[in-house]
Design a protein around this nucleic acid. Sequence first.
DNA 1: TCGGAGAATGAATCGTCGG
DNA 2: TCCGACGATTCATTCTCCG
Lengths: 361, 361
Amino acid sequence: MPVEMLRELPLDQILLGDAGTMLRMLPDASVNCVFADPPYNLQLRGELRRPDDSVVDGVDDDWDKFDDFAAYDAFTKVWLSECRRVLNKDGTIWVIGSYHNIFRIGAMMQDLGFWILNDVIWRKTNPMPNFRGRRFTNAHETMIWAAKSKQSRYKFNYQSMKALNDDLQMRSDWTLPLCTGNERLKNVHGLKLHPTQKPEALLHRVIMASTGPGDVIVDPFLGSGTTAAVAKRLHRHFIGIERHPAYVEAAWGRLAAEERAPRNAVVAPPSGRETPRIAFGSFVERGIIRPGTQVMDKQRRFAAEVTAEGGLVSGPHRGSIHQVGAAVQNAPSCNGWTFWHYERDGQLLALDVLRKENKEG
Amino acid sequence: MPVEMLRELPLDQILLGDAGTMLRMLPDASVNCVFADPPYNLQLRGELRRPDDSVVDGVDDDWDKFDDFAAYDAFTKVWLSECRRVLNKDGTIWVIGSYHNIFRIGAMMQDLGFWILNDVIWRKTNPMPNFRGRRFTNAHETMIWAAKSKQSRYKFNYQSMKALNDDLQMRSDWTLPLCTGNERLKNVHGLKLHPTQKPEALLHRVIMASTGPGDVIVDPFLGSGTTAAVAKRLHRHFIGIERHPAYVEAAWGRLAAEERAPRNAVVAPPSGRETPRIAFGSFVERGIIRPGTQVMDKQRRFAAEVTAEGGLVSGPHRGSIHQVGAAVQNAPSCNGWTFWHYERDGQLLALDVLRKENKEG
DNA sequence: TCGGAGAATGAATCGTCGG
DNA sequence: TCCGACGATTCATTCTCCG
């Protein structure tokens, strides 16, 4: 079946169809980044029960069923090859998986000419236990981050990552909770809409690390739309691909409710020393504080705005909560945690309450 | 080149030679466990040969990396296949690597019929920083733990692992420091003897998790001998293979200094599954529980009565403690030992306390 | 409205033995 | 090789309910 190639990128659209077919419609070397969360090929057998005899709601969807490894490899080769064609020469790709599929995917990526930059571990704070005591608790998933080729001059926002990590280099293991609570999309019955919805904090870090404002990110397995929502929030363009109309519809609804952060909150920080230093970034990443949130001192004499990398901007001043606090007062130093406040439920609260409320901060 | 197969296992020996050749000397299905830390340098000139046995040349052109991958795959296939042959039917293998090689290894393990049980992340507390600031700090290595086949009834010392982890299930991510200080072997110049000496803590956990005292562990890339030293300490047998005489010599020196732990320190805790079974009837027989005793679940929602033949009766339900427990709850199965309770001295005690109080049924 | 108890739940390749 | 019985086994977090 001949596929018509689009002459313009379908920016900020969700294409209904399977990954291979839809990717073929996109022009060569036209996008900056790919985030892919393909089926894992879990190969689950019977039902699994918890010690209290309740049944685990496993992933039994048709889209995760393959006859054998050969079938899975054939499927993988199609979409990975198309992703590589669509990426521009300096583009990068992220693929997430578990031990069921990630080794096959990684080997194939190398065979196709991708150049692996890192494997990144998502360490789950609250994984499902191993109920039968037969293996180690499966407490992580693996992401592969790779450039289109060894020659790619890829983008890595080193300073943003360092700022997000208390002024230490960001490591290859990221500790983040599962997607639960209000963030988890529900269907009309109040049950989870999608069995494998990824947390927004994960996508926030991925997008902040490897793209800039205005870049184009393709997600060939969009699912519930996390990639699209976070891309919109951070002023990146997205192109989503999803086979199931119900997921496409839910993703559109989610996007409608998602607001862009203020423009100056997502500008990349200057490289060099005057960069924010704090774990304040973790609150931004986890959505506890949104980029663009207004903060002020207790007397409301000074105001500033939260940036996507976990710092502040106030007029010409940009940097950590401490640096900007000092700058606006024209003071030599400042404890941003106690100086800056924000409004919540009509109250003015010091940023410090965030640390007290969130031990992991 | 014909290789003579040994008639007896070379227990607690270090074989000088390359992994593939030496593994061929070991009999089929003769060992319990393999720990492998293979080289991952894809530019191993001279060591790597193509499947047709031609030597990979030193060209570093882009297209040549495909040859490098093919050569590495051929090298990997030889030693992995031999490891699988040498493992007994319930044996397991551990392989450690980084993103350079672990994906190729994992995919090949699946293709050879190994059944992956977990991928385990070694999270380094003190990794080498990324000096150029172009990637995430490479702060982990990946281990694949796999059984010889899907049908293997592999060993996993669940209770030992749980005890090692403060009475919580051991997770798939292990946080351990690099091998440094006195543990790190030095050469005569005071420089590190081996570039990738693994910490003993890592091998301790590997060996404790998947083997028992007296088991045989093969390390086809012994290096500085960490596997052998920890195996000896924990009363396991080892068979080491190493192609560099200097490493073999250092490993023997290390083994000479290594003392076995006291015998009773390495006995695995009773794992429940292995403790001898006691029939509930024996307690009735011996008069510890009288026929007619009332039993109930913890919430006192269900009640039943002990029968003279060591079962229970509850309304229309009659049978073993497990069967009646399942029947009254309308559940598919039930552990009667922990479900049913009885009153003694005003306290509600699970029937299970009887087994703990009367170890010799 | 607040606090405590109890229920719910998450990408999961989750038995062994005897007849 | 199949079938039935026995019985081993859960962590972090959020939500709901009730007093």
